[in-house]
C-alpha cells in the first residue's frame, strides 16, 4: 500500500521526488540500452512488468487484520537488474496514481523510492549475496523477492515517520506505529510474493532457458554433463524451497 495523495507535506514530497529522479532517469537509460542491445528481451521485459502489474493489484488479507498488496519487483530486479525494474515499478505506480486514486502524484517520488528503488536494490542485493555464497538458485530467488517486498514497506514506514514524528516519542515512536501498520502486515504477503516469484522463475526455466542464461540467472553451461548438473542443482533447490515453505507456513499458523 502506497502513501496516499497529499499525505506527505510538500517539502517531504519534493525531497523524495528529487531523490528518486536520478534513479528513474538512469533506469530509463538502462532500459533503452537493454532494448537496443537485446531486442529479443522485450517480451520478457513485458512479462516482468506484467508480474508487477498483477501483484500490485491484488490486495490480500494479512495476519494484522488489514489488507495490503505485494509489489512484484523482485522478479524484474533479479532478471534485468534494479535500474530497469525502477522504470517498470514507476510505470505501475503512475498507472495506479492516475486511474485508481491509489498512491498519488505528489507522493509518486516517495512511493517510487520505496517500491521501485529500495525494494529492487535490496532484493537484488540479497539475491546476489546468497548466490555468491553458494545458496541454490530458487532459495536465493525466494529471499530476494521476500526482501524486495518487505523492504519497500519498511521504507514507507520510515518516510511517514519522518514526516509525522510522534509528539511525545518522536521519530521512533511514529516508526513503530507505521511499521506496525505496513511492515508487519506485509510479512506474510512477502512470503507469498517470494513463493509466486519462485513459481514464475520455475516456469521461466522451463520455457526460456536461453534468455535466462544470457541474463546470467542460469549458468552458461549449456552443453553436456555440465548442463545436467545445472538442472539437477535447480531441482534440488526447488525441493529445498518447498520444504522451507512448509516450515514457514507452520510458523505463520
Amino acid at each position: 500500500m502506497h502513501i496516499a495523495e497529499g499525505y506527505l507535506p510538500p517539502v517531504h514530497a519534493a525531497a523524495w521526488s528529487v531523490a528518486a529522479a536520478p534513479f528513474v532517469i538512469h533506469g530509463v537509460r538502462a532500459l533503452n540500452r537493454e532494448v537496443k542491445a537485446h531486442p529479443e528481451s522485450t517480451l520478457l521485459l513485458g512479462a516482468s512488468g506484467a508480474f508487477t502489474f498483477v501483484l500490485s493489484a491484488l490486495k490480500i488479507p494479512s495476519v494484522t487484520g488489514s489488507c495490503s498488496h505485494p509489489t512484484g519487483t523482485g522478479l524484474g530486479a533479479i532478471l534485468f537488474r534494479p535500474p530497469i525494474m525502477t522504470v517498470l515499478g514507476t510505470i505501475t505506480l503512475l498507472f495506479q496514481a492516475l486511474l485508481l486514486a491509489h498512491g498519488g502524484l505528489t507522493t509518486l517520488g516517495a512511493n517510487a523510492f520505496s517500491m521501485a528503488i529500495v525494494g529492487p536494490w535490496a532484493g537484488y542485493g540479497v539475491y546476489r549475496l546468497l548466490r555468491r555464497s553458494g545458496v541454490p538458485l530458487m532459495v536465493s530467488v525466494f529471499f530476494g523477492a521476500f526482501v524486495a517486498d518487505l523492504s519497500t514497506y519498511c521504507v514507507t514506514s520510515v518516510q511517514l515517520a519522518l514526516a509525522f514524528p510522534d509528539p511525545s516519542s518522536g521519530f521512533l515512536g511514529a516508526l513503530a506505529k507505521f511499521g506496525g501498520i505496513f511492515a508487519v502486515t506485509q510479512i506474510p504477503l512477502a512470503v507469498s510474493e517470494g513463493l509466486l516469484t519462485v513459481l514464475v522463475m520455475r516456469l521461466l526455466i522451463q520455457s526460456s532457458k536461453g534468455e535466462l542464461t544470457r541474463l546470467g540467472v542460469l549458468l552458461s553451461g549449456g552443453r553436456g554433463a555440465k548442463d545436467a548438473t545445472g538442472t539437477e542443482g535447480t531441482t534440488a533447490a526447488t525441493g529445498a524451497a518447498g520444504e522451507q515453505d512448509g516450515t514457514k507456513e507452520a510458523v505463520a499458523r
Partner: peptide, 11 residues
Amino acid sequence: FAGADAQAETA
C-alpha cells in the same frame, strides 16, 4: 481487513 494505506491515514 481495511487497506493498510487507509489505516496509515488514520494514524
